[in-house]
Write a protein that binds this DNA or RNA. Structure first.
Lengths: 339, 339
DNA sequence: CCCTGATGTGGGAACGATCCCATACGACCT
DNA sequence: AGGTCGTATGGGATCGTTCCCACATCAGGG
């Protein structure tokens, strides 16, 4: 392995000077700088990350914990984070928590131990005190994704779930729907609660309340969407529109509705949330609320990078807007569709 | 920061003994071992990764380069790799090449520089000599995913594209189809070429050749599938079955066929490849050939881990079978459907 | 002419682990 | 008694950087 010593020997300068050239700080004369750069090139010298990290206590690696890398949705988030890191010359060390608290904590501690310069965390569960202390003791900045109220967070990025849900609900209501069911992801999820809140706002803006529709709580799974529809539509068609908590639920709902012989959107309208990679591929293409999740991952990384470079954040909490994407799964209710 | 020295002081032993306890090698008496473990616990000592890495030249980190983290397909692969790494107590440092040679090389070199213990590579392009030399100089093992003929590879995992395609084609032929078009992903991709080879085998087993069907080459995109169908079916229905190069192409083909008024599978059968997330969600659900891609990622990591532990591989090249998944997009051709 | 401050350079002590080597002791054999 | 071997322990060099400090030189001001 070629070391800084080899370079210094070839360039006829001290190790210190080489180090200064590499780090581009301190005083170096133009002549020596040139000599060092030449020596580096001829020897093919690449600094040893470990030695550098040991001495400077920095690794140029950012740690990321994400709920589930496997999921297409989070994959997109990771993509954004990774790209931002790469552009800044940082590596991304990745772990998944898979929604398990113990696993998430293990992952976090491991990332801290690996001397990550900072963390981007997308967690299912709140961080326990002990883990928070470990992070704090290491003195590394943390940006949370999807939740803003954790004690250790120096920054947070969230999607405007309420605003997005409000737009979606407003769209349904303005199309004339009144018999609406919301198949939510469950009150345990903050995202889910915020979406219900947005739905409520849309209703209130039109003189209605949550009691005027049916709000159900299940899980963010296709299975739940499928089962819920089969149950709700067992005997008759009680609703003209379904607002699914996410696109997975929507997919299950669409499948169930089709099996029951309902046409979409003629008989029943369906709207989703997320704009999954696959929303476009449903038949009909799913009208949904897009979460710009890649963007979220990118912004989180950029916030972290800014913190790492010593600049304070002008905005500790960034809320990214969610946008209604109109495709083909929503129409005016058949009763009122007198065009 | 609490160091090994602090532990040794508290446990009244030397640094060396503490190190031996941590690494669980060498001779340590039961008494001292207990004392050290106790000291570690009370101090909350966690070894410094950098120092350890510098000295031992090992990082316990595995580097992964994947074509595109953003894609759901590769995300699943990454998931498998990550899980295997985690189970072995290794970290996974991730990079994406996005199909760009320069980017892929940059990513590889960076991973080598970060002292990764080994690499899992899923690349679009062959590795250039210089990069291969850098990897070799670092002396770290490499497992390739999806391609087996690179010079630096110590192991390789591939999916049996030919076998899968053969099964798919056999299925179409056995249903009675003879007027078949294959919309391939393009000869530039080895996967694509192997699939054509499998199709050929199925034909030959039945006394036919590739000339008896229509083999087209496009790209692995929905757009291509859509355009190809619109072109081929412009005036009449020349084919009773479409074998798409992957599920994206299949999705585009299905959309185009529907727009042209063909029923699937009554008028035209469609079969895909991959078993993407959305294959199940197409209407009708897509009959396709499943690539167990998560499995592939896991196996690749396991091979690498085995190499890292010093054991040679009993199989340098592992070929994972692809399985035909029968759903609803294939039926017997209408002409021959005399049930 | 001395002092100060800016510029330039090298020496060498850290950083926190690993691991080689020296040493010690008891058991057992010859 | 002396030698050998297995077990147990500590000392300290070492990994490749960074970075503090000492020192040198030179210009400009008092």
């Amino acid at each position: 392995m070629v070391t800084i010593k080899d370079v210094s020997r070839l360039a006829k300068v001290s190790k210190s000077t080489v180090s200064r050239v590499i780090a581009d700080n301190g005083y170096v004369s133009e002549t020596k700088r040139r000599a060092v750069e030449e020596a580096i090139a001829t020897l093919g010298y690449r600094p040893n990350t470990m030695a550098r990290g040991l001495r400077s206590n920095r690794s140029n690696i950012i740690g990321g914990v994400v709920l589930d890398v496997t999921s297409p949705f989070y994959a997109q988030m990771v993509g954004g984070t990774q790209q931002a890191c790469r552009d800044a010359g940082k590596g991304l060390l990745l772990s998944s928590g898979f929604g398990d608290t113990a696993e998430e904590e293990r992952a976090i501690i491991e990332l801290v131990d690996r001397s990550c310069d900072g963390l981007v965390l997308n967690l299912e569960n709140p961080i326990r005190r002990e883990v928070a202390d470990i992070i704090r003791a290491a003195g590394i900045p943390v940006v949370m994704v999807g939740a803003s109220d954790y004690p250790v967070a120096d920054g947070a990025v969230t999607v405007d779930n309420a605003g997005g849900a409000e737009a979606g609900m407003a769209y349904l209501l303005d199309q004339g729907h009144r018999r609406i069911a919301h198949l939510g992801g469950g009150t345990a999820h903050r995202d889910s609660r915020q979406r219900v809140r947005g739905i409520e706002r849309a209703l209130e803006a039109r003189g209605l309340t949550l009691d005027d529709i049916n709000v159900e709580h299940g899980t963010f799974t296709e299975q739940y969407g499928y089962d819920a529809i089969k149950r709700l539509f067992a005997h008759k068609a009680p609703y003209t529109a379904i607002f699914a908590g996410d696109d997975d639920i929507a997919a299950g709902a669409v499948l169930a509705l089709k099996e029951l012989g309902y046409r979409i959107p003629e008989d029943v309208s369906v709207i989703g949330f997320d704009d999954n990679f696959h929303a476009r591929h449903l038949t009909p293409a799913l009208t949904t609320v897009r979460q710009p999740i890649g963007e979220v991952g990118r912004i989180a990384a950029e916030m972290l990078l800014k913190l790492l470079s010593g600049h304070p954040l002008e905005q500790k909490s960034v809320i990214v807007p969610a946008e209604l994407i109109v495709r083909g799964s929503v129409a005016a209710p058949s009763g009122s569709a007198k065009s």
